[in-house]
Amino acid sequence: MQTAPPHTRPALPHLPWLLSRAAAPLPLAPVSVMLSALTRKLVQAHPAMLRRLGPHADRHVLIDPTDLPFALLMQPRTAQVRACRRNRLPAHDARIAGPLSAFLAMLHGAEDGDALFFSRDLTIEGDTEAVLALRNAIDDAELDLTETIATAAGPMGPGLRRALARAERISGLALHRMETTGDWP
């Protein structure tokens, strides 16, 4: 057997500590309402996601971006998202934890979910089937948060699209769908 040295990619960006602290006092109810509305739009625009999820669409999955001051409890069937403090986590069927950048990269097809698991950037606990089904359904849907948000913003859409592209360049977060093979490293 011949073993080659590992080829590593640049470390995933973490949210700056100051930004994370600034988000801490945010009231969770409006965050939950906004994220639920966004999730509803994504599910309505990509109905095949629920078909792929099958019975797993009813599971409660805790998305835990470790560099944000709150976690997100999500149920795909109802498209409900609830932001919650880590000292009062609600009951959940599965938990996926890692930096926000890992979730966004996986959602937009910039990084492979298994590779993020191998590298320990993402950890999973609980119902492994539900986590796999969710990962596969999202990957097939080819989601694009920038386009979804910009479209929903109506006349403010073009400006928002430019602002998000700028935020992506500055932060290193993947905020748009990988479109062509040239987008991948």
């Binding site: 057997m1 011949q2 080659a4 590992p6 080829h7 590593t8 191998f118």
Partner: peptide, 21 residues
């Protein structure tokens, strides 16, 4: 040169049985 090992289990590559000892 392949630069794919980071995508793989173990994050390291082998030639398997093709050149197995």
């Amino acid at each position: 040169e392949s630069a794919l090992a980071r995508l793989t289990e173990g994050q390291a590559a082998t030639t398997g049985a093709y050149a197995k000892t």
